[in-house]
């Protein structure tokens, strides 16, 4: 079974994945384009998402070895600053973190991740928008009646595509705020 879905928030992605697993599936593959592959499973599984900044080949090997020793299977994730997807058969230890300090660090990493994506996309948006107006049809705003509406509606889908980077800035911005909220809740305790 394949499902397509896009996420801008790691916490929501993890929740959605675990909802699928609770229906009696386990995840076999995740592609970068938002395609998740599942297969029927006899045993209940659990997925946890971690984020790690750039790791040297050695460090990445050590990171994976420790998780694998604890029974986790690595589904996806590169060592060049990426989300790490871990799955295992559910048992008494279904978490990847066991103290509050680890969660504080985890949310801090998620904040940096969302913020760096938001800033990169903001820079891309600036480069796209700085030399052009949103609607590029000449004299669009001087047109009248049905001619205006036809031209306006024709161009709108292109405008939305052009606005995508900016929409993504906002979505990653929300993801940042969400992580920041969790971070400050845990930190103040």
């Amino acid at each position: 079974m394949k499902k397509f879905k896009l996420f801008f928030n790691i916490v929501e992605e993890e929740q959605w994945l675990n909802e699928q697993l609770q229906k009696g599936y386990r995840c076999t593959n995740i592609s970068g384009l938002g395609i998740y592959t599942f297969e029927k499973a006899n045993k209940a599984s659990i997925i946890r998402l971690d984020y790690q900044d750039y790791l040297s080949a050695n460090r990445f090997e050590e990171y994976k070895t420790i998780y694998e020793d604890f029974g986790w299977t690595h589904i996806r994730g590169s060592r060049f600053g990426s989300i790490q997807y871990w799955q295992k058969t559910a048992d008494s230890q279904n978490e990847i973190f066991s103290d509050r300090q680890s969660y504080v660090h985890y949310y801090k990493r998620l904040m940096n991740y969302s913020l760096s994506l938001a800033i990169s996309l903001l820079m891309i948006s600036y480069m796209i928008y700085k030399d052009s107006s949103l609607y590029e049809t000449k004299g669009l705003w001087d047109m009248e009646g049905s001619l205006f509406w036809k031209a306006f509606l024709f161009e709108t889908p292109f405008v939305i595509i052009k606005l995508l980077p900016l929409i993504m800035v906002i979505l990653f911005g929300f993801s940042y705020l969400h992580a920041y909220r969790q971070y400050s809740l845990l930190k103040d305790k």
Binding site: R48, D50, E62, Y63, I66, Y67, D69, F70, W72, W86, S92, Q93, E95, I96, F97, S98, D99, Q101, S102, Y106
Partner: peptide
């Protein structure tokens, strides 16, 4: 009982 990520 330490979890993998906490130990790492």
């Amino acid at each position: 009982s330490l979890a993998a990520g906490t130990l790492y």
